[in-house]
Design a protein around this nucleic acid. Sequence first.
DNA 1: GAAACTAGTTTCCTGAATGAAAGTACCTGA
DNA 2: TCAGGTACTTTCATTCAGGAAACTAGTTTC
Lengths: 123, 123
Amino acid sequence: MNPKNQKPEPLACDPMSLIAIKDTLQLLSGKWKIQIAGLLFRSGRMRFMDLQRAIDGIGVKMLSRELQELEENKIVSRTVMDTKPVTVEYELTAHGRTLEGVIVAISDWGVTHRNHLFKQPSV
Amino acid sequence: MNPKNQKPEPLACDPMSLIAIKDTLQLLSGKWKIQIAGLLFRSGRMRFMDLQRAIDGIGVKMLSRELQELEENKIVSRTVMDTKPVTVEYELTAHGRTLEGVIVAISDWGVTHRNHLFKQPSV
DNA sequence: GAAACTAGTTTCCTGAATGAAAGTACCTGA
DNA sequence: TCAGGTACTTTCATTCAGGAAACTAGTTTC
């Protein structure tokens, strides 16, 4: 009945913190969400096109989609401005701003350990 | 010559911190690396099968591959023990332990904001 | 009326990520 | 010698993330 290969029961020790990590990662999944949040954290409100210009390599589709998901999860708020032509501004919600610790930790680690990254490149 | 759709030049303001975020995320990319690092951070040395048992849902292939990538990037060390049958132990390197801030920030945020997660579920 | 700006959505496509299962290899105890 | 444990690797299949380009839609400027 048991297949030959390993299919272990999870250990009783599945610590809360592992589940918490999983939750957070799921919320911030994808290539761009943390970058978007980090940018909004530093820059405050930003418009759609400015976000695209600031985030190297992102296309409109992914930006649109990631913003939608962040909005659904109350990380980012979306405000349609009464301008001609309409512009839309995005910013972190109060809840989104609680990600400060995560954003700063990730950013700081990247800065500090740049030399060590990716098998210690010749940079 | 310019296609009709938007393909903006990146803004001059492409802050160091955004690049740093990108770097860190690339290093920790994939579904499992941060979970693995978080587990090793809490538990110290662990063997292959114990890691699999502790991480809900991971299969042998992914565990093997993620560990290899973490090892290549000097986050995790791999030690073959002189036992019968051979066992292999993994632990964070000194460099891997500098991820503490990242791991703790992500874990803490998940714990604190569990109620807010995923559109404020009925949990 | 054509071009260009705003902010998207939709369609189509590709490559990467992931997973299940089987195979490799070695050793131990019944 | 056969089941079962260790630790993987390989193969095959599938799903999904991501990207390019076209398209919608309203407004403004030339």
